[in-house]
Design a protein around this nucleic acid. Structure first.
Length: 408
DNA sequence: ATTCCACAGGAAGCGACGGCCC
DNA sequence: GGGCCGTCGCTTCCTGTGGAAT
């Protein structure tokens, strides 16, 4: 094929996406459908900042994809803008605690926001704290600190940072600080110091999951900007919404589905419209990605068990038993020079794979022939096999095959 | 009705490891 | 820094069991 033809083919295809970024989780829309209540609640609390008072601290709860971060960022942006308008300095600092996950780094981040020079590492924490206080207190202002994924950080580094932040107002002469904590986990305050808990949770806002029709509205709103006119089939958005509603009303999932469906249509099929078939395929693709990630992260022994199951599945073509899997697992381990665990342990590993949805396991009785687990794969065999073969420890298994006598 | 297979899965305990407290 | 505790991954030992075969 000549090279000019090669490109022509793709160039001619009518693009579907006008602006794909709109469908990404990082995008903050200027209106959040079905979040008016939460947004105005936030605004009613934060308005204190515009009067130069410090707003109550807020805790925001909700599962992934319920619009917590988007709502908080949106209100934060509006607050800063309004502050400028009425000449009250309001700063909003957004920190994702999954990335910035220690007391030191959070304080350093805030200090840097106010142009203080703090190295990313090296200083004692109390010196960073002083810099932070100095930076914030340099002028009359209300500083709102948003700590996203706060539950993750508490798990890793404790609640000292929250304690320090919540009492910093006592040291400030000009400025005032308020905190917004955003959490996926409804019960994370249980582990907090009671003092921190009461000061942080002065106000609590809950973001419930979206239902299918709300998800539809969200998708409609974004799709208008993301896609060119008439590039979505009628059933596409409702299907994405319905699928995501089943998964705890996760808007991020709904947007992912729509985006991936669009990509499949545009690149794979070079179709003019995104239809329901693309959504189905998008769902498979997304799920497949999750499974691949899960398999890669499995402990080595569990991967070996899974590999043994795959090999047997290839050669038997029927449901397997614990004994068969264990025997094969032993051979696999010997081939890659790995410790062989006991059968007792391996049955537990098999059960774990079942719980992860990678295997299908049922306990059945074969009468005279004993009681065993009936094991089958619930993921695509060949894809997962090649994923496993890319794992360093399992690499030598590329040249491994079952001994003949066990083929029967 | 009894036997007996091929395991399931509970109990206890062991060693390694990390966090914490004095 | 050393003693203590909880947790994790694992082994050892064990009792229990559904139902085809007898």
């Amino acid at each position: 094929m000549s090279s000019n033809k090669l490109f022509d083919e793709f160039l001619d295809a009518k693009p579907i996406f006008e602006n794909k970024e709109v469908l990404r989780p990082s995008y903050t829309p200027e209106y959040l459908p079905h979040r008016d209540e939460q947004v105005s609640r936030l605004a009613s609390i934060l308005v204190a900042a515009l009067r130069g008072e410090s707003p109550s601290n807020i805790l925001i709860y909700g599962k992934t994809g319920t619009g917590k971060t988007a709502a908080a960022k949106y209100v934060g942006k509006e607050l800063e803008a309004k502050g400028e308008e009425v000449e009250r300095a309001c700063s909003v600092i957004y920190i994702n605690c999954e990335v910035v996950d220690t007391q030191y780094r959070i304080l350093a981040q805030i200090a840097q926001h106010f142009d203080q020079d703090v190295p990313m590492t090296g200083w004692p924490t109390d010196r960073v704290y002083e810099k932070f206080v100095e930076a914030v207190d340099r002028r009359h202002q209300v500083v709102t600190i948003m700590l996203d994924e706060i539950d993750q950080m508490i798990e890793k580094s404790g609640d000292d940072i929250l304690y320090n932040l919540s009492r910093v107002n006592g040291e400030l002469r000009r400025a005032k600080v308020s905190i917004i904590g955003i959490s996926n986990d409804l019960r994370f305050t249980e582990t907090l110091d009671p003092r921190v808990k009461s000061s942080l949770g002065e106000e609590e806002i809950i973001f419930p999951p979206y239902d299918a029709s709300q998800l539809r509205d969200i998708l409609e709103q974004r799709a208008g900007k993301a896609f060119f006119d008439n590039s979505l089939a009628e059933g596409t958005i409702p299907l994405c919404a319905a699928k995501a509603a089943k998964e705890h009303g996760d808007a991020r999932r709904a947007l992912d589905l729509l985006r991936v469906a669009g990509e499949l249509a545009e690149q794979g099929d070079r179709a003019a419209v995104v239809d329901e078939k693309h959504v189905e395929r998008a769902q498979n693709k997304i799920e497949m990605n999750c499974v691949v990630e899960a398999v890669k992260k499995l402990p080595c022994q569990t991967q070996a068990v899974l590999f043994a199951t795959i090999l047997l599945d290839e050669s038997r073509g029927r449901k397997l038993t614990t004994g068969e899997v264990y025997e094969t697992y032993r051979r696999v381990c010997q081939h890659i020079d790995m410790d062989v665990l006991t059968q007792r342990r391996v049955t537990d590993l098999i059960s774990e794979l079942d719980m992860l949805g990678i295997l299908n396991v049922r306990v059945v009785s074969k009468g005279r022939y004993g009681r065993t687990k009936e094991i089958s794969l619930s993921v695509p065999r060949d894809e997962i096999k090649s994923v496993l073969l890319d794992v360093y420890r399992l690499e030598p298994l590329r040249r491994f095959s079952l001994p003949k006598q066990s083929r029967f």
